[in-house]
């Protein structure tokens, strides 16, 4: 890339200004989305009803106290504002059972992010490679195999895939004669050891769930990378590159691949949505206590605060990925910069 010259630097500041505006819009979207989730949850959830179903039913006084505790006597916007006020100060409120959400939040975010980041990184890298190979060897065996793989993977819901992958993991364990691959939980409970040993322990629990989520991402990105690459294969500039004396292979990699990466930037944002839903299932199936798991149990327990917290987390993630998408696009495509 060229050293920034005068007009270029000006364009750069324009882009930064644009990205800032875009970020502001995202923050508004985030808030509206969270409010929507909060309002919908408040409307449909009936935590008192669940309480009443207990046998024997709790005394009236307890129920009244709970009602006040959960602010059910106040209108929804007010409840939201008071919750949001807490969030700003780092207090995400309490669960229906009365535990502070903030205590659990950090650990759960860590669990989920570990899964998401690994999944998306492996997915993007392997997906792009697979897509490029597939496009270059179009209609050859490699392409057919890759295509079939993507189609099959994209047709298997994560909650089936996870269960399916447990079988070869078990077979692997049987083969090596020890329970190396773990498919329940995220670490051995009460594991004691050095930092390094602890990492090794976590790795045993990480492999199968990460694979579950990464496979879907690989299939997703490879399909799009393949078609982006095929688009580029027929382009005039690739012909110009060959006409100036580059071999087909060199022209493909230097001119083709670089250009075919551009549409992938926009896709990144969409891929992330898929990742989050997939992550929820994965956490559930492998017994990881992450944010996705929390959402499911939150809905089951009809817990508005938990749902709102998870929604905020998801909205922030989706928007960060959308914003990253913009930044990536600006970095990859000079046409956007000017």
């Amino acid at each position: 890339m060229q050293a920034p010259t005068g007009p270029y630097r000006k364009a750069l500041s324009d882009v930064i200004g644009f990205l800032v505006r875009r970020l502001a819009n995202y923050i508004v979207l985030c808030l509206v989305a969270t409010f929507l989730a909060f309002a919908l949850a408040s409307l449909t959830f009936d935590p008192i009803g669940i309480l009443m179903q207990r046998n024997p039913p709790p005394p009236d006084a307890v129920i009244q106290a709970k009602r006040v505790d959960l602010m059910l006597d106040q209108p929804i916007p007010q409840r939201f504002l008071s919750w949001l006020g807490g969030v700003v100060q780092g207090d995400f409120g309490q669960t229906v059972a009365g535990h502070p959400i903030t205590d659990e939040l950090g650990r759960r975010i860590g669990v989920s992010l570990r899964l998401f980041l690994l999944g998306v990184t492996i997915g993007v890298i392997c997906g792009v490679v697979l897509g490029v190979v597939s496009a270059i060897r179009q209609y050859k065996l490699t392409d057919h195999v890759a295509t079939l793989f993507s189609f099959v993977i994209l047709s298997i819901p994560v909650f089936v895939l996870g269960t399916l992958l447990k079988q070869p993991a078990q077979a692997f364990n049987d083969l090596i004669g020890s329970n190396y691959l773990q498919t329940l939980g995220e670490a051995t409970p009460g594991f004691q050891g050095t930092w390094f040993e602890s990492l090794g322990d976590r790795l045993r629990y990480l492999i199968v769930p990460t694979l579950t989520i990464a496979l879907g991402q690989i299939a997703f990105y490879s399909r799009y990378q393949r078609s982006a690459m095929l688009d580029v294969l027929g382009s005039d500039f690739l012909r110009t590159a060959q006409a100036k004396g580059l071999t087909r292979r060199r022209a493909l990699f230097k001119h083709g691949l670089r250009t075919a990466l551009i549409p992938m930037a926009t896709l990144f944002a969409f891929g992330f949505g898929l990742l989050i839903t997939g992550g929820t299932f994965t956490e559930r199936i492998f017994g990881w206590y992450g944010m996705g798991d929390w959402l499911i149990s939150g809905v089951t327990a009809q817990d508005t605060n938990v749902v709102a917290t998870v929604t905020l987390f998801i909205a922030v993630l989706v928007l960060i990925s959308g914003w990253l998408s913009d930044v990536l696009y600006a970095a990859l495509d000079p046409r956007v910069r000017v």
Partner: peptide, 29 residues
Amino acid sequence: GDTELSRIRGRRISMVFQDPLSALTPVYT
């Protein structure tokens, strides 16, 4: 083959294409 031809293309025989708008790679100067 492609390798042998690529030694001739652009050095001994070169070509100018019809559509200048798409003939250059958009991402390089």
